[in-house]
Nucleic acid binder design. Structure first.
Lengths: 212, 212
DNA sequence: GGTGACCGAGCGGAACTCGATCATCGCTGT
DNA sequence: ACAGCGATGATCGAGTTCCGCTCGGTCACC
């Protein structure tokens, strides 16, 4: 496993939180707050989410929200981070389980996992990777996509033909950008994900990474 | 010209506005408000933009802002719409001027125009096409990219080899999605636009549209 | 008893409203 | 022609409401 979680609820490091939860009930609270935020975002969108809504839905008070998160934006950033973490766990899990050494399997699994997340993970759709980018237009996207790009890089590095691996990181950047955009389009077209776009995503990304 | 503007300032239809300006001074006001919004967004980002700032910068009062825009978000949506309108005008202008009948010229011009907009058009960078999508996560992107896709469709339809034109609209959807994402990445990496990503954008989009 | 966790009234500021005021336009009668 | 005059467009800005966030006090766990 490349991804290690010190706590089920907390995303990554993480400097997004004011106070790390130490008692059991409080990490449940954190999880609950993020769940509430995810549900609200799915229903009315990030822009209309208020901290009071999050508190009420999680059965907490406003003060509790601000005990964990420095501000409103940090809530959605933490949610995004949790999403990315879960996505990476999935991809990692599936690929080691399969035992495949083919790089294009890793690509396929990554796309499968994202499709699955779009369908089942609350908030993923609205947040994609970096609609937290919405929040802070400077960092958000980088924060979200960087770790993902690095994980894919690590996964592909050992599987990719050596002669082309010089530009692997750049190619991955481009591929992830393309793939995410097409997938987003697929789920913008329909809630279950337009299969035409999804298939096109597979072929485009695989084709590009294969070197045209 | 495919694009017709009834008024220099107003973007498209447009149902984004509460009141259409009818007198001359008031469309100047509208233009001024959008200019102010663009400048502010460039300086401090969409999130930190306040309606009071827009009003002050445009030399208007808050009430005037709300005479034209239903809410804060609509301001940036209108700005996005104006950006898209200007982009389309440019592409259209350059391509008829060139007289080219090659579809890949249309693609090149479209990419050139976007690069130019990123570099010179206030607010374009922050707004891309659909960081208004940021605003209203449901419609924003659709509102922005739809007219663009349709214009490109119209441009390419007469230039594209007939045998493949059946899926032209779908292919264009995908191509625009890919291209926009890669371009955005180029200008996220550096303010002048990372030329490596820009070149990759050209080759990927042209390659894809050529049918691989 | 000491520290972690939680609450919610309250503060500051930003989004948005509304009725009063001013500018422009089109008409109409001389 | 054009001066006057309603009607409608356009502007203003104090005021209201709502939301993000703080802080001191209370409760729960070790």
């Amino acid at each position: 496993m490349l991804v290690t979680e010190t706590n089920e609820a907390l995303p990554g490091g993480s400097s997004l939180l004011r106070n790390e939860p130490v008692q059991a009930r409080s990490s449940a609270r954190l999880t609950g707050l993020l769940d509430a935020a995810a549900a609200i975002i799915d229903e009315i969108g990030f822009e209309r989410l208020t901290t009071a809504m999050v508190a009420e839905r999680a059965g907490a008070s406003i003060g509790t929200v601000y005990r964990y998160f420095p501000d409103r934006i940090a809530v959605v950033e933490a949610l995004a981070a949790r999403c990315v973490g879960r996505l990476m766990e999935r991809i990692d899990g599936v690929i080691v389980e399969s035992g495949s050494q083919e790089w294009h399997d890793a690509v396929d699994f990554a796309i499968d996992a994202q499709v699955d997340m779009y369908r089942t993970e609350p908030g993923f759709r609205a947040i994609r990777f970096g609609d937290a980018e919405v929040a802070d237009s400077t960092s958000g996207e980088t924060e979200g996509r960087r770790p993902f790009a690095e994980q894919m890089s690590a996964l592909l590095a050992v599987r990719y033909p050596v002669e082309r691996s010089a530009d692997l990181d750049f190619a991955l950047d481009v591929a992830i950008e393309m793939g995410s955009a097409i997938l987003a389009r697929a789920f913008q077209a329909s809630p279950e994900g337009d299969s035409r776009f999804i298939e096109e995503c597979r072929s485009v990304v695989t084709g590009y990474l294969a070197g045209a």
